[in-house]
Design a protein around this nucleic acid. Structure first.
Length: 308
RNA sequence: GCCGGGAUAGCUCAGUGGUAGAGCACUGCUCUGAAAAAGCAGUGGUCGAAGGUCCGAUUCCUUUUCCCGGCA
């Protein structure tokens, strides 16, 4: 089975730097697993690696950083939708291509679900997001309450009661979307397939206080580097109401531009929200028993040497 | 100096004569086509201090300290 290295960790833990160093050492190419770096123009706020060259070829990597090819960055405009299912499909194709060229694929990122979709070969129900149907269900929730819609789901798919969180509108909506569009119960569609690759997962171990400091420092830096202008340009081009802008750094700056909060408050909110995000990432990654937690580059190198 | 208003969880504030709540923060968790999203749960307070009334005071009374307004 072909091999895949995964570098994961909470935001601001140093995934980018580590993965580039490892890619250089092991003749690797990087497959980003980041749900926001997907989007063009969202650069500063998503802490994208800064590229030396952007290849012209449509089929090539998104960018080259320090001589290392990066994939799955800047592949969508902020007004386009993207999803785990698409990510899984894109990533597998690219990983296979990297193998074919005799190089080592290194998946690096903080979007746990994206990583899981590939590593565990999640069998995501073949039902595309239907924005119109979702809006309809959302309105129904507004009028009759979430519980009413949940009961409706249970009538169509009694088993869903055990799987779907009745208090989470997004989960209820998706489950209903699937049962309505496939005419088959949602509960029977949550599976995963056989593993696609031989995977080594490496997690960057961080110290709480240090990570908090790094997050705060990075956010101050983003604003100094022009995050406000970046957001202004994006909303001029796409408007404020894009799903892609529901991202830390973007929604707070949009609040500031709407004069709802001061810039200082926007920064404060960004720091708190990023910390919450980092904690959520940690609980996600901690639940994954396959992760090898490392403290430094050397440990990662050692693990990979043994693995390859 | 005088007259008001306030002092309750880390913060902003509700509230009651029978030892107290909310939102946010904090901590833990969930996650299969929006995942930097969306949701769930939990911890936390000698109710500014000292006296008094009362079976019982965070609540009523007195004094006191500090804050915020107004008048001088």
């Amino acid at each position: 089975m072909n091999k895949l290295i995964v570098i994961l960790g909470p935001t601001a833990s140093g995934k980018t730097a580590l993965s580039i160093k490892l890619a250089k050492k092991f003749n690797g190419e990087i497959v980003s697993a980041d749900s926001r770096q997907i989007y063009k123009g969202m650069d500063i706020g998503t802490a994208k690696p800064s590229p030396q060259a952007k290849p012209r070829r449509m089929a090539g990597p998104s960018c080259i950083v320090e001589g290392v090819a990066h994939w799955l960055i800047d592949i969508k405009n902020p007004n386009e939708l993207y999803s785990v299912a698409e990510y899984k499909e894109n990533a597998i194709k690219i990983i296979k291509d990297i193998h074919k060229r005799g190089k080592t694929p290194i998946m690096a990122g903080g979007t746990g679900l994206y990583i899981k979709s590939v590593v565990e070969n999640l069998d995501i129900p073949q039902v595309e997001a239907d924005p119109i149907l979702r809006q309809k269900i959302e309105k129904e929730i507004e009028k009759k309450g979430l519980n009413f819609v949940f009961e409706k789901l249970i009538k169509l798919d009694p088993e869903a009661a055990y799987i779907v969180d009745p208090k989470n509108p997004r989960r209820v909506i998706r489950a209903l979307e699937i049962t309505l569009l496939t005419k088959k119960p949602f509960s029977s569609q949550r599976k995963s397939g056989k593993p696609l690759f031989d995977v080594l997962e490496i997690g960057i171990l961080t110290q709480k206080e240090k990570l908090k400091e790094r997050i705060n420092f990075r956010i101050d830096k983003m604003v100094k580097e022009g995050l406000v202008d970046e957001v202004k340009n994006l909303i001029k081009k796409y408007g404020k109401a894009q799903i892609a802008f529901d991202a830390i750094g973007y929604r707070e700056i949009i609040d500031y531009l709407n004069k709802k909060i001061t810039l200082e408050q926007a920064l404060e909110n960004m720091k708190i929200n990023t910390w919450h995000y980092a904690k959520r990432q940690m609980t996600w990654f901690n639940a994954d028993k396959k992760v090898n937690w490392i403290k430094n580059y050397k440990e990662a190198e050692k693990l990979i040497k043994k693995f390859l």
